[in-house]
């Protein structure tokens, strides 16, 4: 009697261990042939790139007002709530000063014009994103097809490790239910729930249907978007002809947002 009970416990324990280990095995073992992986196909007019990049011509912006329509366009289509408490603020793109966008760069005496320019900051969609490295659930990941750093709002556990990891302060956390604070909900883009992190997605949903990002569209040509790895792309053209800087490029994250100063 006793020995059989012990054997049962052993078996049950082994079975529980096996079940618990299944996802780990799945992660390292190749997918079995019986269950074919779902195929995600691209739309016929989706814009392709190896690594999307953005070049911002800061010479074309003179005051914070010039950036407002861009921020407005982005936040409107992405259902970004308008929260008045600065601590709980959600922002995908925002306007800041030169010395905040590029801390460590400013000289004590420099061009006053540059110093007073508004700088638009957003997620840099780094080639080596520290946030992706930190995320314990792959809720934030770098899409291999075009290098965009994306968020799965349904997988995010809200640990905020990515926020500590991001050296650009580009990520926001939903400290409260954001839905009551969205003025006009865009049904084409998901709203978020409390307790998850969000950030700029380079308008992945627009690229999928052949549209450029909303801020680019609203910029009257001051922002150019294209494939960094295509030597003939417009962004590469601009990078060849203009001196550009990136935010904290000494950290090795390889940001994909370039600034012409």
């Amino acid at each position: 009697m006793k020995s059989s009970r012990r054997r049962f416990m052993k078996l049950a324990g082994a079975a529980a261990l096996g079940l618990g280990a299944q996802p780990v095995i799945k992660a390292v073992a190749p997918a079995s042939e019986e269950s074919p992986q779902p195929v995600i196909r691209k739309g016929s007019n989706a814009l392709p790139a190896e690594q999307w990049a953005m070049v911002i011509d800061t010479r074309r912006f003179h005051s914070a007002k010039d950036l407002e329509p861009l921020i407005e366009a982005c936040h409107k289509i992405h259902n970004v709530p308008h929260l008045t408490n600065k601590n709980h603020e959600i922002k995908w793109i925002w306007e800041t000063h030169y010395h905040n966008a590029f801390p460590g760069n400013p000289n004590p005496y420099q061009s006053e014009e540059v110093e007073h320019r508004p700088f638009m900051v957003l997620c840099n969609h780094c080639e080596n994103p520290p946030c992706v490295r930190a995320c314990p659930t792959k809720a934030t990941f770098k899409r291999e097809s075009d290098g965009i750093v994306l968020m799965d709002f349904h997988r995010c556990i809200g640990c905020r490790f990515c926020m500590a990891a991001c050296p650009y302060g580009s990520r926001s956390f939903n400290f409260r239910d954001p839905r009551p604070f969205i003025e006009e909900t865009n049904p084409k883009f998901p709203t978020r729930m409390k307790g998850v992190v969000e950030k700029c997605n380079f308008c992945a949903e627009r690229l999928a249907v052949g549209q450029k990002p909303a801020c680019v569209e609203a910029s009257n040509g001051a922002i150019v978007f294209g494939d960094l790895k295509d030597p003939h792309s417009e962004v590469r053209e601009l990078l060849r002809e203009n001196f550009t800087i990136r935010r904290k490029q000494n950290l090795g994250t390889e940001p994909s947002v370039y600034y012409i100063v």
């Binding site: 618990g20 996802p23 780990v24 992660a27 992706v132 490295r133 930190a134 995320c135 314990p136 659930t137 792959k138 809720a139 997988r155 995010c156 556990i157 809200g158 640990c159 905020r160 490790f161 956390f173 939903n174 729930m193 409390k194 307790g195 998850v196 992190v197």
Partner: peptide, 19 residues
């Protein structure tokens, strides 16, 4: 501390060795 504590087991369900 988790924003979505009911999803805590995602750490086990989607093991991420780089984190």
């Amino acid at each position: 501390d988790l924003g979505q504590p009911t999803r805590a087991l995602n750490v086990m369900l989607y093991p991420t060795p780089n984190s």
